[in-house]
Design a protein around this nucleic acid. Structure first.
Lengths: 229, 229
DNA sequence: CATTTATATGACAGTTTCGTGACAGTAAGC
DNA sequence: GCTTACTGTCACGAAACTGTCATATAAATG
């Protein structure tokens, strides 16, 4: 469940530097060299965060930013802007367009990493935090421990990954196909109904007596993690 | 749920350029080469937005515009006008006739895309937003939840899709055939009367006691989502 | 007002979708 | 080898949903 970061940068030296360091940090990396390529890749892979150079060939950074914000699927992906210009105008324009943070070149890799963590934590805590909570449920991604209202719960590997995925976007409904893709992997072939079985097992595990069912079935659509049932 | 854009343009090179770029952007495209063809296609397909060249063979752009505005079914489809002439008179005449925006040739594709998004958002937020509201009704397409004045409402899959479609054009009347097409799919054969039943079920679900009926029956025509009953 | 036409709705049977226990196969640990 | 934990598939019953019809109600027509 490593976060995927999309780097959009035309300076290849800088790009390599970023990719190398962020991969070492544990992120998956996708790179694009111009705005056009970036938009294509982003809509295809829907990364968890975008690092965007301000000055780009073909389509400028600000335009990439604007377009991403205009589309529902990419509207909520956090963006960190890299710019050579330090003047205030740019800062405002950048953040106005919907960027979440911004860095002026030259910057330290350490600082970039810090900003990335900060932004990811704010937008999707499930991606960076070891411990993620929802309602009275608590999962520790390092020790693979799960608690419901303080009580320890044992989950099998698949159930853990399933819950871990659902908890990333609480409330959002995932189709069986989406879950297969995310939890099982897009390469293996498994029956869609298998998801039902594992959801059932997950339910049985986390719904200890006297608790509300945290998993909602949306008929003909899929499942979601949702306290309001 | 991809928006359908009708392009009306006699210059084939420009037409191809537009079609290519907008398709890549995620829109469905329909093209017409003159005003006559345009009117035909538009009344047939009822696109979500029209890009209209000002200078057209057979029927001029301004005339197409006027006729569209005169007909109830097409009155609210946003129109963006393309023109070679940059003088103010035209612009005013265009917007006067009911066009929503205006671009002077030559223009950048980027700018056109930006205008399209802006217009769509203004006119039909349901196409770009995940949570859509109408009156005291609220539907969330990510969590698949429906609320009426804060109260949670349960809808079956078909009723959900039906409401989701009606709310795209609040106030607009849909014939049973149109609804069958949009909600059931153009390939399945279902009785037109079946729509009545589902509308009835939707009514019963969303019209909780003490609320006005949000669905309007238009005798001999169809149904619409409409608060003024 | 009588008649025709259009819509509302309860009932119902057929279908789809879900939940779950059972089971066999696999892998890991001892 | 034996045990244990886990996985994916299936089958079957339960529940939810669907489409159609028959009947009731309402609106237009003349």
């Amino acid at each position: 469940m490593r976060p995927l970061i999309q780097i959009v940068e035309d300076d290849e030296a800088l790009e390599a530097l970023l990719a190398y360091n962020l991969e070492k940090e544990g992120y998956k990396i996708s790179v694009a060299n111009d705005g056009e390529e970036a938009l294509l890749q982003i809509s295809e892979k829907t990364p968890d965060l975008i690092i965007l150079d301000w000055m780009l060939p073909k389509i400028a950074g600000i335009e990439v930013c604007r377009r991403l914000r205009a589309r529902t699927e990419t509207k909520n992906i956090p963006i960190i802007i890299l710019t050579a210009r330090a003047d205030e105008t740019d800062k405002i324009r950048g953040l106005d367009t919907g960027a979440d943070d911004y860095l002026t070149k030259p910057f330290s890799i350490t600082e970039l990493k810090a900003r990335i963590r900060a932004v990811l934590r704010r937008i999707r805590p499930a991606l960076v935090d070891e411990i993620v909570k929802y309602h009275d449920l608590e999962i520790d991604r390092v020790t693979h421990r799960v608690k419901r209202g303080g009580a320890e719960i044992h989950l099998g590997p698949t159930e853990f990954r399933l819950l871990n995925h659902l908890i990333q976007h609480p409330g959002r409904v995932f189709s069986r196909e989406q879950l297969l893709d995310a939890v099982w992997g897009s390469d293996v072939y498994v029956e869609a109904r298998t998801v039902d079985v594992h959801v059932g097992r997950l339910r049985k595990a986390i719904n200890i007596p006297g608790c509300t069912d945290l998993i909602r079935t949306v008929r003909a659509s899929g499942y979601s993690l949702d306290a309001n049932n």
